[in-house]
Nucleic acid binder design. Sequence first.
RNA 1: CGGGGGGUAGAGCAGUCUGGCAGCUCGCGAGGCCCAUAACCUCGAGGUCGUGGGUUCAAAUCCCACCCCCCCAACCA
Length: 501
Amino acid sequence: MEKFYITTPIYYVNDRPHIGHAYATFAADTFARYHRLVGERTLLLTGTDENAEKNVEAATREGESNVQDYVNRMSALWQVTWDELAISNDDFIRTTEERHRRGVEKFWHAVEAAGDIYKGSYEGLYCVGCEAFYREADLTAEGLCPDHNRKPELVKEDNYFFRLSKYKQALLDYHERNTGLVAPAARRNEVLNYITNHLEDISISRPSKGWGIPVPGDESQVIYVWFDALLNYLTGVGYGTDEEKFNRWWPADLHIIGKDITKFHCALWPAMLLAAGLPLPLRVFAHGFFTISGQKISKSLGNAIDPRDLVETYGVDALRYFLLREIPFGGDGDFSIERLAGRYDSDLASGLGNYVSRVLTLAKDVDHLSVGDALRPIFENTWREYHELFAANEPGRALEVIWQAIRAGDRYIDEQAPWVLKKDPQKKETLEIVLGTLVESLRQLAWLLQPLLPQTSDKIFILLGLEQEHDRPLAEASVWGSEVSAPKIASPQPLFPRLTA
RNA sequence: CGGGGGGUAGAGCAGUCUGGCAGCUCGCGAGGCCCAUAACCUCGAGGUCGUGGGUUCAAAUCCCACCCCCCCAACCA
């Protein structure tokens, strides 16, 4: 059986979950559910990045003396959020976990053994206020830190370095051989340009301030967060703790990431893996960013939206639907409540919800149904395009083709006018075929919606009286007319009650 | 300054690679239906395809110049 290992970024505990994080996680969840649907052994991993030095400061600011308590509390916030959004992650990795630390140490030793870690010094302009280095180009005209308006100090630090530059040619060769590694394709140029022109050895440790994973053999330094964080993809499937499990899952089939971290995943990460002698991920997909009503999501504007608030009002599937459908996957998009509400009313209430309600009301008091073939070609075509679109990482367009099938169903109802057939006893057989065809279209829709709108899909199965439908293999269940008996249809409950009267 | 992406109907987008009647959703207008969640179906109005120039029988699409927006630019998930 084929396997599919997919990851989200691990989220920074210092942040609070917002709509952009929910987007990445919904997307990964959708792909994971799709691969489970088609019968692949699937693992979806998400988690939190907890070793950054800034957490020490953040804990103090929030009046928490123990940093571990602070990151525990913040990590729990992320876990609760994904629970409330019904994310089907199989595991949740935290970089402060023992299993992660052990894997990181093993990895460090492997890279060290390859001769790719050396001690060097880093010199730069350091602003004490920011606790960060600046390049001269980033300073003000007077040579001051733009945030604090103070003169940065020239600081020299001894650090461990990773011989990233050594892998320049190997990375270029790798990208040459695997043109599909970076998706969407537009990101590839960016990555190649970076590798060709800007690839230099990087510092992978910092002087320890008592937080983070110590450099093996040198307690005075901690491992730089990026080097540590990327390794979650390995440690989350057993690297360093369960080699048998690790071998079963690695390499990752798909890393879902934000476009801002493309370089780390397409240059640094593969170089690290090459150094450690491990296989490289098969695909990295960089999704786009949102604006909120046209503005950047930013802490200073305070416009970050907690996805849990939206879910409370609209439901998990409505938010999923909006994000997947409205924002072309890989491109940027704009989020606004007005547009969410608009999609909800037009596509979910008037579209899918109304169609389901329409069919069930027509069919519920009819005691015998038989499935005709009128809608069969539509759905067979929909399935074909659906699989193609998932293969092309286009879940939003998969929703589009499903909605075309709904339209075809609505049209079929109008053409056949079953409410007219009902009045004519001579047309009983035709009526049974029309209604059977429509009920079958609902069963097909529920299957198509499994990975995209899982809660809605389940509701439709229940309304059809097909509670056990889940357990069937897709290859059998997706065949048109494979469930012909008259289902015990429940009285339709609105799937998506209208927001506006 | 360098690299990347984008500017197409009132709104949001597809189409540009491989030149050939400018398309989709929402909104708007008219008609139909009355099973359904003020839902459904049909038809229609609406566009100097960022600007200027060029190539071509033909350009949203190819070439040149320019304007505007966004992202990245070595440690800012």
